[in-house]
Design a protein around this nucleic acid. Sequence first.
DNA 1: GTGGTCTAGACCACA
DNA 2: GTGGTCTAGACCACC
Lengths: 74, 74, 74, 74
Amino acid sequence: MSEQLSPSPSLICETILQQIERGLFSTQSKRLPSERELSEIFNASRLTVKHALLELEAQGVIYRKERRGWFLAS
Amino acid sequence: MSEQLSPSPSLICETILQQIERGLFSTQSKRLPSERELSEIFNASRLTVKHALLELEAQGVIYRKERRGWFLAS
Amino acid sequence: MSEQLSPSPSLICETILQQIERGLFSTQSKRLPSERELSEIFNASRLTVKHALLELEAQGVIYRKERRGWFLAS
Amino acid sequence: MSEQLSPSPSLICETILQQIERGLFSTQSKRLPSERELSEIFNASRLTVKHALLELEAQGVIYRKERRGWFLAS
DNA sequence: GTGGTCTAGACCACA
DNA sequence: GTGGTCTAGACCACC
């Protein structure tokens, strides 16, 4: 990640999409890192990360299992 | 803390009480009042206050944490 | 503060500097570490820590602010 | 308002709807109180209030003028 | 002096 | 040890 402060949800969306395309984040379980881990990775608050995840969910890229985590839709 | 695993709630209680008596758990904040509060304190517009804060930042007296507020540099 | 309206930025600068020198703007927090931190400090589960905190609350030593944390009662 | 802590967005929605039906909030301008005022009225954070307002916007009850405020749709 | 947006951090319900 | 949700409070762009 760059040193940029306060990344926007859409920037986080883009970056996550790129990582997905590159095969990162896709382990056997296809689970994404937790919201807390993503917060640290992107140097953003959980709220901002959540907004990005909701955006990707709306795009159908990922889906959510309540209190279980976020997973790749493919 | 001792090396004991899984301390009982009452042991934790005791330890917390001791720490409170010793004055621990009290930290010192070096945060300045918010820009809005400073505006009211000085009866000045927020723009004027901002100019003053930027001046102090340039002098190295205070620094800014993005969206977190202003803090003493020392 | 004087009664003067619309003080200049430099006057505000001066005043803030004086307050800093006098030690104002430093407040004392009476907040306890978060439940997660206490769990790590005591190497105990969050449930155990919670029981200890509830005990201390019953003793009137600490009190809770909903979703804000635990604070010393004194 | 009751003494209830941490009201949910949907509870705030209901209450605002009732107030609208009773003709409160509807002055000549049909403008709602500011998000900050609503936060104080409902003893909730701005974020929670915002969620309630977005819900009412989705229902078509109110609409938003960017950086101007919230207004009754009728 | 508004809404827009973000931070850092709580506690909670649940698995 | 996750996501769900909320708090209190920032700064910002704009009116």
